[in-house]
Design a protein around this nucleic acid. Structure first.
Lengths: 323, 323
DNA sequence: GTGAAAGCGCTAACAG
DNA sequence: CTGTTAGCGCTTTCAC
């Protein structure tokens, strides 16, 4: 592998001149440019990114923590984050090892070792210290007072869902929550939902899902459990993927949708479109963009102006509710 | 940031000794170990991966090219590849920028610049030269004689699909193919399918999809086009995602499934389970594992023993066929 | 068992 | 406009 020195030697200049030219970081005469260019050509020289990284002390890599890309929410957010990171000259390092304290510790370790320049996390263990003075952006997680968080307006989401269920005449709503260990701010939607429904005299129950949010067999089991435990349920609020299983289970039990049972999805990904679910749509593209913008600023040493960025959600009426 | 020199100084030893200990690459007396350990402790030292990478000339990163992680096939394969790479000490660099000649050229460039140690590609532009003497593993793509390829037995897949359609009495089957520019070996299934069906007197038509294989609006349009163009179609073979759209469109047009129309999915991801599609299931986990095994071997300088690894598929009977 | 010294390949002051 | 020089932080022979 030819190095910058070889190029310099062949072109009859010094390595720094080659570097200047390659990085457009100073003036190089047309004549010299010519010589260097041809040297690069004949040697088939390619700069070594590893050396550049060491010398600049950055990797241009951002770790994106999202438990399971086959889950529509994760897949969508990862896709958009990657899109925006790419457009800003960064690459996505996938961090999808099963979420746990130890893997999250490992990610922080990688951050300290400069393996990546920063982390964007859709989920992060609350006990793992992240104050290592490195860029960190959280989506939906209020990790601590120094970490910027980008999120949907989950309270609004809860309100809208509640009012939809009420308008549709639901009297017994079951809502799904993620594993509470993670203390995600998305839980706000569940609190508001439950509160509002109860105030209006409806019955509300919760089912907490573990981290296997994309595992068919698990979701199937939980859907069965839901109907076993709450046979008179007439409204369900949860992720599209889970609602799909509920839909199947409902059909098997002879419950008609939307007549006997209303379903409202809480993410609004492509799976809602596909299944014509009524959904509260989170603006995932905007969330991804803001996360990346913040990340890029942080890697450049800029501080964020605002710590919490909250995005409004919208409603998409489908065929799983009447109104 | 404390460096290895700082640690060495504080511990009263030389940097190389610290390195020896950290990498378990030589004997260090218990006494010295003790001193070094405490120095590391007090300085809160973390090795710098960038420096290590330069000196070892590797990044421990593998680029995984998969156009769109929200597509069930891509998401699933990426998930498993990442899983296996992690277990072998590598990280996944997501390469999902829209597939094109120029992005693929860019990926090869990154390979040459040592940005990544190797590439596993589920799709790669046939015109982009990949013989840069770096680890490259192809999934489903016969790129050239030096690149190992891991694939499902797509001929078997085509045979099974054909025999299923015939057993179900289909006389007019439409099958979907990906953009032919890519010349993926997955096209074998389409060839065999068409051939077998025609030999048995059935009508066969093809619709070629472009690269927006996960875009709802596009797939919707194509599903409509399919039924417009072939109103008497009684069998469709394609990816789960597309079949979902067909299912919706069929319902709108009053076609009953499976009575009037049979659907067979060609990937067998979670979306088939969810929708109870009859599917030819590709062993994506095994494919991911073999790809990673090959990649790891290649990065270690071992050569592959076999150039093509082909995995048998299986059938999963669902509710979209009668038999 | 441990240390000295020479890299890995590039960048970035600082001169001139 | 270009060259000299000194790193970036770690690894790795090769002596002692």
């Amino acid at each position: 592998m030819a190095s910058i020195k070889d190029v310099a030697k062949l072109a009859g200049v010094s390595p720094s001149t080659v570097s200047l030219m390659l990085n457009n970081t100073g003036y190089v005469s047309a004549e010299t440019r010519e010589k260097i260019a041809s040297a690069i050509q004949t040697l088939d020289y390619t700069p070594n990114e590893l050396a550049r990284n060491l010398s600049k002390n950055r990797s241009n890599l951002v770790g994106v923590i999202a438990p399971d890309v086959t889950h529509p929410y994760c897949g969508t957010i990862v896709k958009y984050i990657d899109l925006y990171l790419s457009s800003r000259g960064y690459k996505t390092m996938l961090c999808s090892a099963s979420s746990s304290r130890s893997t999250d510790l490992e990610y922080i370790n990688m951050l300290k070792r400069q393996t990546m320049d920063g982390i964007i996390a859709t989920m992060f263990h609350p006990d793992v210290p992240i104050d290592v003075g490195k860029p960190f952006v959280s989506i939906d997680g209020d990790l601590n007072g120094h970490i910027p968080v980008v999120m949907s307006n989950h309270r609004q989401e809860g309100e809208i869902a509640a009012s939809l269920f009420l308008k549709n005449g639901c009297r017994h709503v079951v809502h799904l929550t993620s594993n509470k260990t993670w203390r995600t701010l998305a839980l706000q939607r569940n609190e508001i939902l439950a509160e509002t429904l109860r105030q209006n005299g409806a019955l509300v129950d919760v089912i907490e899902l573990n981290n296997h949010i994309a595992e068919s067999s698990y979701l199937d089991k939980m859907a069965q459990l839901l109907f076993d435990q709450y046979p008179d349920v007439d409204g369900i609020f949860g992720s599209e993927l889970f609602l799909c299983h509920c839909q199947n289970e409902a059909k098997m039990r002879g419950k008609r949708i939307p007549e006997d049972l209303k379903l409202i999805a809480c993410d609004g990904t492509f799976l809602s479109d596909l299944n014509h679910f009524t959904a509260i749509v989170q603006p995932l593209k905007a969330i991804a963009k803001k996360s990346v913008d913040l990340m890029v600023d942080l890697t450049k040493g800029k501080q964020f102006e605002q710590r919490v960025y909250e995005f409004n959600v919208s409603v998409q009426k489908g065929e799983t509710t009447i109104v």
